[in-house]
Design a protein around this nucleic acid. Sequence first.
DNA 1: TAATCATATTCGAATATTAGAATATTATCA
DNA 2: TGATAATATTCTAATATTCGAATATGATTA
Lengths: 91, 91
Amino acid sequence: MEYVDCQKAATFFRALSHPTRLLIVSELLNGRKCVNDMQGLLKVRQPNLSQHLSFLKLSGIVECRQEGKQRCYCLRDQKLIRQLLTGVNKT
Amino acid sequence: MEYVDCQKAATFFRALSHPTRLLIVSELLNGRKCVNDMQGLLKVRQPNLSQHLSFLKLSGIVECRQEGKQRCYCLRDQKLIRQLLTGVNKT
DNA sequence: TAATCATATTCGAATATTAGAATATTATCA
DNA sequence: TGATAATATTCTAATATTCGAATATGATTA
């Protein structure tokens, strides 16, 4: 296989290495969601959710847009994430 | 997407979330290697390498076999790993 | 069986991650 | 403009990760 940027890849995988963040990400596979939507689905407190979202944003996995009062998050590369999760899921 | 076992997936991704472990893994994409081979390729001390290998083994990413004095490691699912790294590399 | 090569384990210190509590910010609405 | 809804940030304590140093183990060879 060609050269792998291990630093970059490690950052990417680290972002996916926490169950809560994976839950967020797998919810986002179903489409854009605002923080409040996600809170309804996950059992974490709002500040904690916000921290994880921030982590995911810094790692380049999600992006967000302000929409009125709400902030909507979505995956930056839905196809890639789907592929990664599907692969690992089969393990 | 179907249900994702986030606990399991998180463990898997965490194993790949360290640059040294990714280096190990990408070396193993070229085939089986014993610890000493890997030491020649990476710039880490032997005990540290051994720790990372142990982590990768516990996470189910590699397996190893004793071969004479040496212990040879290989990927348990080379195709999956190649797919994951290729995907992330394109990011 | 003693020496040696190859690898693993243990321990401790430094650092990073995580979650909760408290608080701050930002956008809209009355 | 003040109140409120939605989200983010900061601080802190608990825990986890990482590395190096020292040491242990296991297989082979002399």
